[in-house]
């Protein structure tokens, strides 16, 4: 995934995501959504729209999977 416009960036490990959608609820700029496609285990993993992430990390906070998400922020 390429960095898009925005202070932040979310990297998604598609094979660890179970598509529970808690991150899409928590995301304030609403730049996360469940993918139309399925991962290996048959879940619709979350995907980043590619722009607008603030890097706040709330998606990571609510995500139940230890390694499904990684949040980055533009260095000051």
């Amino acid at each position: 995934m390429k960095p898009g416009a925005g202070r932040g960036l979310v990297e998604i490990n598609v094979e660890e995501c179970k598509g529970c959608g808690l991150c899409t609820d928590a995301c304030i700029p609403k730049v996360l959504r469940l993918s139309a496609s399925l991962n290996r285990y048959g879940y619709h993993p979350v995907e980043y729209e590619g722009r607008g992430c603030s890097g706040c990390g709330l998606c990571f906070v609510v995500c139940p999977e230890p390694g499904a998400l990684r949040v980055l922020k533009l260095a000051a």
């Binding site: 960036l9 990390g57 906070v61 390694g67 998400l69 949040v71 980055l72 922020k73 260095a75």
Partner: peptide, 12 residues
């Protein structure tokens, strides 16, 4: 110029 702020803990 992006730095990681949240990622999988090394305790896992």
């Amino acid at each position: 110029n992006y730095t990681t702020v949240h990622e999988k803990s090394p305790v896992f």
